[in-house]
Design a protein around this nucleic acid. Sequence first.
DNA 1: GATACACCTGTCCGAACGGACAGGGTCGCA
DNA 2: TGCGACCCTGTCCGTTCGGACAGGTGTATC
Lengths: 260, 260
Amino acid sequence: MGAGEGMTAADLARYLSKHDLVTTLDLIDAALETRTQDQFRQLMVLTSGLIPIEHSHASVADLDENRAITRTRHQVNVNFPEGWLHTYRQLHLVEADPVAKLLFAHDKPLIWGQIRQAHREPADRRFYGRAAEFGLRDGFSFGARFVRSSSASFFSCAGKGLTSDRRHVTIIQYLVPHLHSALAKVHLGLLKEQPLLTPREVEVLNWAKFGKTNWDISVQMSVSERAVKYHLQNAMIKLSAGNRSQAVAVALSQGLIDWG
Amino acid sequence: MGAGEGMTAADLARYLSKHDLVTTLDLIDAALETRTQDQFRQLMVLTSGLIPIEHSHASVADLDENRAITRTRHQVNVNFPEGWLHTYRQLHLVEADPVAKLLFAHDKPLIWGQIRQAHREPADRRFYGRAAEFGLRDGFSFGARFVRSSSASFFSCAGKGLTSDRRHVTIIQYLVPHLHSALAKVHLGLLKEQPLLTPREVEVLNWAKFGKTNWDISVQMSVSERAVKYHLQNAMIKLSAGNRSQAVAVALSQGLIDWG
DNA sequence: GATACACCTGTCCGAACGGACAGGGTCGCA
DNA sequence: TGCGACCCTGTCCGTTCGGACAGGTGTATC
């Protein structure tokens, strides 16, 4: 029991004040209620009232079977230095980033300082140097797959002295997994807001997932069988699916239709 | 922000000791790690060290579109009176149970005492009388759908004076949603343990979800196309699916195959 | 040795599917 | 007044699917 290695409930009592505990618990509760991007931003603001987060940035991405990022779905940049993000993309620093390599390895927050101490290779030094130019020295990252989805979120927070303090580290270990699940909920909500599929396409897929034939669906929807094929065909094109089975599977895993 | 109506962070500070806060936070953390039925039982035991839970009982069930229970998938009865559960089933008390009506209405813990005060009808009186015979007076229930699944969990905890105390109620409000997600994880794990499907059937479904044809799959698995049809057919029978699309959808929603 | 189960294979055939051809319409927006 | 969406309809045709017939093996259990 307890978050992270060597982290125990005793740490909570030792390093955190009663006010810290109350705030952490309330932030966890607020994370449960978080549904929208604005609420998530607000959550990060509240968090930075507890620990000195100066910059934070969250991404949702698709992973392949090797847990490598294939596509970035969307970003919530609260106040991360744009220059750094630009440099990172431009120079493909993901190859050099020691944190990125470990991001999805364990479902634990990664404290930059701890990584820095473990890996002391010259290539890493250059990376840390670059990051320091943008004021990014202390901080943490957290990456985790969403349950029952091929997507994952990762986010980074930076701030002066953020992770050289046992109090901060303790709070991070206990709080961050809940920020992740809040982000997952925000992401799911956003997917439904941006309607990749038209209402009719969703309707057809919702029947198809129950194994209905085109003719069955046409009766339910009071249209011709051809109309059903038309919508399903468009849905398959939009979802890059080769047939109705894949279309249903993709739509389910993307949260475009739900589980009736 | 804050759990439940009128519940604020101030309540945490007012009614909870520092030790309470530490324990609650650590229980929430332990809930994150919970994967097995034994771990869940252990979690309930730890919880009863914090608030006076004497009896607890958890169920996972399938819901229809009206949020009515269609099938109970499995139960974790820690120490609920068997006699009461038997009476409940025998007399279909779910019809009379005021708590059951509200179980999936909001994603909030239901404090029995509060329900009892709100509904003072004679029919309810009889129900409370029966429950009291089994020592069930004070307690709470919590029901919520699992994300991206047609299943839901609900569980009830009872104990003397359990919910007539602000301290207990506050802890319950903040803790219980995390117990629910722990139960969800346990349930998912159990589904994979009881192999409804054979390894080959799982393999075929995993190709089918990518839209592969029977012939494609037969090449991948180095068997005849007929063998693929054989496995898929058996899978469809076991999953009560009418065709491959429904088989894939059901297998996904049951957690029998995953995304990737 | 019988029984059960998972695994694999074959052929046949009607139903369902998916693509490609073609053509309607309404609505909102530039 | 286009233009692009979304919606709807038709026919044709080759492919795929799913059910029903039938058979085989190996392995574990009793």
